[in-house]
Design a protein around this nucleic acid. Structure first.
Lengths: 187, 187
DNA sequence: AGGCTTACCTAGAGGTCCTAGGCAAATTAT
DNA sequence: ATAATTTGCCTAGGACCTCTAGGTAAGCCT
């Protein structure tokens, strides 16, 4: 009997693709086993349980997103950096809805610390170097930016903006303008 | 055999309590049936399926949240209204995590239109009457406010702010200050 | 009291999660 | 090259959840 050559990493990768196809909440051990033409039970030598699989997926997505944002930020500063960050963030969420949903998972403190979650905060902080902000305003601003990006992207996905004809794209651009102006004259 | 006296509304109400106790994703038809001392199959004369149950829960939560916010807004305007809205929103999310998670469910357009989702947008718009904003800036601002509130609350719940010692409460207050200042001088 | 509606039941099929224990393929040691 | 060990995938099966079909009895209406 030939082996499928499964590893935790290959499973996580496949789970990520599956998530983008069928949604994060439908990423199931069974579905993943089916994808590899293998029995459910076989996966349990590579992952601890279904939750563990989803956590691995979340960690993968956080790392991918951090990479994207990091690339986008390279060589930019000020509003340029702000827009690049936000756009990379939103683009990732739209291209990889399942992966993005995974990044919203509540991770236990240990996992969160090991993951790229810290890098996100650090990169957001990097944007603020183009503005005249210092602690603790910096942390407050980081949290505000993160909240707004995440909130916008997640409401957009949930269809919360469809009820009004005003283009979502235009609102997004204006939101970034507003944030830039806010950071330049932080109250 | 005495009857339990189930109705769709009583089920939805119980589901809401269950959601706050065990989390929205653990609201299951079986658990609900257990709660009423009744067999799973019995619930299917009142609800169509598990998804239908969750949608009813989402609609209930949206209505409750709208009521809370509406009460909080009464007689207030300007920054007062902004803070009252945001605080009511955040308080509801913290007191009723399961119900709040339900409000994040993607609803199909018909359900969304019938639900209190529209009232939320309308109330956010009411806040802006205290500021000097007109269409289409108003819609952009509504979307920005909604994004920020939702993003903040949802990241707070996910534990995204625990990595830094700066108090979440302080960041929240500053975020509201910042939004107020932003609305007063919308770029 | 008889008839109708409906609340709840039993039975059962199909799906997901996960454990225990087994065999055979791949790897390492001799 | 063969033996010993590890490990990848298997079968079997239990527990829980979802949902359908069809039946019985409780409560309402005449």
């Amino acid at each position: 009997m030939a082996r499928a050559g499964l590893t935790a990493d290959r499973l996580t990768q496949a789970a990520a693709e599956l998530a983008d196809e069928v949604g994060f909440e439908n990423v199931t051990v069974s579905a993943l086993a089916r994808h590899f033409g293998v029995k459910d039970a076989s996966l349990y030598s590579h992952i601890r349980n279904a939750h563990d699989l989803r956590v691995r997926l979340a960690v993968l997505a956080l790392a991918e997103l951090a990479d994207r944002v990091s690339d986008a930020l390279a060589g930019r500063s000020g509003k340029d950096a702000l827009v690049a960050f936000a756009t990379a963030y939103r683009t990732y969420a739209r291209e990889h809805p399942g992966r993005y949903a995974a990044t919203q998972m509540a991770l236990d403190p240990d996992t969160a610390a090991t993951s790229a979650a810290g890098k996100h905060a650090e990169m957001t902080r990097a944007i603020l170097r183009g503005y005249d902000l210092w602690e603790p305003d910096q942390t407050d601003a980081v949290r505000l930016l993160h909240s707004t990006f995440h909130g916008f992207v997640s409401l957009e996905r949930a269809g919360a903006f469809h009820s009004h004809p005003r283009g979502v794209e235009a609102s997004w651009t204006r939101a970034l303008d507003a944030l830039d102006s806010l950071l330049r004259s932080w109250p």
